[in-house]
Amino acid sequence: MSEYTASTPRRSSRLNSKDPSNVQGVAKPEKTETSSDTTASPANELEQSIDVGDLIPDLTLLNQDEVPVKLSELVKSRGLVIFAYPRASTPGCTKQGCGFRDNYPQIQAADYEVFGVSFDSCKSQKSFKTKQEFPYDLLSDPEGLLIERLGARKPDGKLFRSHWIFEKGSGKCLVKEIDISPLDSVDKVFQVVTGSNA
Rank of each mutant, 00 (worst) to 15 (best):
F115V: 09
I107L: 12
Q108A: 10
Q132S: 01
F115C: 00
F115K: 04
E113N: 00
N103C: 15
S127D: 13
R101G: 07
D120H: 01
T90V: 06
A110D: 06
P105D: 11
V114C: 05
G99T: 12
G92A: 07
A109G: 04
S127I: 10
Y104I: 08
G116Y: 13
I107N: 09
G116F: 12
Q125M: 06
K95R: 04
R101L: 13
G97N: 12
E133W: 07
D102Y: 12
K123M: 06
F115D: 01
C98G: 12
Q108W: 09
T94C: 04
G92I: 06
P105G: 04
S118E: 09
A109L: 08
P105W: 09
A109S: 13
F128K: 03
E133H: 14
Y104F: 15
C98W: 07
G99I: 12
K95Q: 06
Y112M: 08
S121A: 12
S89R: 08
K95W: 00
P91L: 05
K126P: 09
F119S: 09
F119D: 00
Y112N: 05
S89P: 01
Y112F: 15
P91R: 05
Q108Y: 07
R101D: 14
S127G: 03
Q132W: 05
G116D: 13
S124A: 15
V114K: 02
A110T: 10
T94L: 09
G97L: 08
E133M: 12
K126I: 07
E133A: 15
P91N: 02
E133Y: 09
K123L: 10
C93G: 06
D120Y: 00
F119T: 08
F128T: 04
S127K: 14
S89E: 14
S118K: 00
Q96K: 05
Q125W: 07
K126D: 11
Q132T: 01
S127P: 00
T94H: 10
V114H: 09
N103G: 08
D120R: 00
Q106F: 10
F119L: 11
R101Y: 13
K131R: 13
Q96F: 12
D111N: 13
G99R: 06
T130V: 02
R101C: 14
S124F: 09
P105K: 06
S127W: 05
F100N: 04
V114R: 04
K95Y: 01
N103V: 13
E113S: 03
D111E: 14
D102E: 15
D120V: 01
P91D: 01
C93H: 13
F115R: 05
C93F: 08
D111Y: 04
I107H: 10
V114E: 08
I107K: 06
Q108I: 14
Q125V: 03
R101W: 12
P91G: 02
Q108P: 00
Y104R: 03
S118D: 07
K123A: 12
I107E: 10
Q106M: 07
A110I: 04
S89A: 13
C122S: 15
K95C: 03
K123H: 13
G92K: 02
Q106A: 13
